[in-house]
Simulated scan of single mutants.
Amino acid sequence: MSRKLPALLALSAAVSLALAGCSGTTDSPSTAAASDAASDTAAATQASSVTIEDNHGSVEVALPVQRAASTDNRTFEVLADWGVPLVAAPKQLIPSSITAYSGDDVADIGNHREPDLEALVAAEPDLVIVGQRFSDQYDSIAGLVPEAALLDLEPREGESFDAELKRQVTALGQVFGKEAEAAQLINDFDAALERARSAYDGSSKVMAVIVSGGEIGYSGPTTGRTWGPLFDLLGLEPALEVEASTDDHQGDDVSVEQIAESNPDWIFVMDRDAVISADDANYTPAKDVISNNAALGNVKAVTSNQIVYAPDDTYTNESIITYTEILNSIADAFEGAQN
């Protein structure tokens, strides 16, 4: 046997192993197709978006949102509970009960009366949620951050208020990947709404007021700030109806004597100053304003202690969470009166 044969055999074996190794790393057509599909799926996920119908039309929001900003008071507690960071917000309008956005990493864009939109621009948001007190700033914001998606989900006139609250939280859930959490908030709200509806006797007269600066303002059915929509949702019988009532943040100017003469069975109270002036030496809690007012001394709601107070932070936190708390408080009070 030639001494070259073992060497040739060894070389042949090595070549075979090398070829086998190459065939092991070379994708078959089906494997290659699967790999390409996976790559395409990953790329699609990275470049995905969601289309939201807001108050201005269809808005395409690129996902995931990297640098969100919000001006809408209805959103702060929801987003904080979901752990959604913000790069900019009107800090003066966020109640102290919400601490998630008080840090220096969140740019302060002032308030609706003196907005600092330059701070918003510097924060470089890719999404801005516009609404409530900043609704009038929509066009200005759109012009200053043209690359950002803008969402305006402020409840629309002529639409059912409960549906509008749910529309907003549903959209936010889609945008931030919190669909399950949004569904839970809606379920909680619906349960509280049904409790309050079922507990109302259908005939007791209700008066809603806003206490501000020690004065008692009237919050009328449908239009009144905070309380107005609840008259419609719960089918409440108003103790007093004032022509051309408004959604004024301090309530409408109605004399306490008129309120007393209407003799409501229930009084619903929102303490406007509790969230903006609680540290002021001259601040008087709404409970004291109501109880110390001589004109209301003989009103049934007062003598029967049938008064429901909204959460202290309601004035700057009218989210679906706040309304769930309010509705449960109303249900508790109505149910308690029946026992």
Rank of each mutant, 00 (worst) to 15 (best):
D40G: 10
E261R: 09
A310F: 07
D36H: 14
S255A: 04
N263T: 02
N282L: 14
M1G: 08
A47H: 08
S96T: 06
V169H: 05
F231I: 10
G336N: 13
R113T: 15
D81A: 09
A47W: 05
Y315D: 08
I98M: 11
R113G: 07
E159H: 01
S96E: 05
G158C: 12
D201T: 04
A148V: 00
G83D: 08
V308R: 04
S160P: 06
N292R: 10
K178V: 06
E179G: 02
E154N: 11
E164S: 08
L86E: 04
P115W: 03
A295P: 12
L327H: 09
S304C: 01
V106D: 02
S96C: 02
A182C: 14
Q168P: 14
A122N: 15
S160F: 02
T31Y: 08
G235W: 02
A260M: 02
T322D: 12
S49I: 07
L153S: 09
T71A: 04
I94E: 03
K91V: 11
A43H: 03
K287Q: 15
D81N: 15
P95F: 00
G217E: 08
A171W: 02
Q174S: 10
A180D: 15
A122Q: 05
A14V: 05
T25W: 13
A208V: 13
E53Q: 15
Q92K: 09
I98E: 02
L236N: 06
R156A: 12
A44H: 01
P6S: 05
T316W: 14
V175M: 04
N339S: 10
I186Q: 08
A333M: 12
D104V: 03
S198T: 15
S245H: 10
A34Y: 00
D188Q: 01
V275I: 15
E53R: 11
D248R: 07
L234R: 07
A163D: 14
L127C: 10
D27K: 14
A34V: 10
G177N: 12
A80Y: 03
L296H: 00
A182E: 02
A337H: 04
S23Y: 08
D280G: 10
N111Y: 00
A14S: 05
E179Q: 15
E335S: 14
A148T: 04
E243M: 12
R197H: 03
V211D: 04
I186G: 00
T316K: 08
D162S: 15
A69I: 13
I290S: 09
D40Q: 15
L185S: 14
I267N: 06
G220W: 14
V65W: 09
D108C: 10
E325T: 15
P155H: 02
V59F: 01
S96V: 07
G297Q: 06
D136A: 05
I129R: 05
I94H: 02
A199K: 02
E241D: 11
S16K: 00
P146V: 06
N317G: 00
A286G: 13
L151T: 07
T170L: 10
A42L: 12
V15G: 01
E77Y: 08
A10D: 06
E53A: 05
Q92H: 07
L117M: 07
P146N: 13
G173M: 11
A43N: 15
S329N: 12
A7T: 00
L172Q: 14
K178M: 06
I290Q: 09
A278Y: 12
F76K: 04
E181S: 05
P115R: 05
T303P: 10
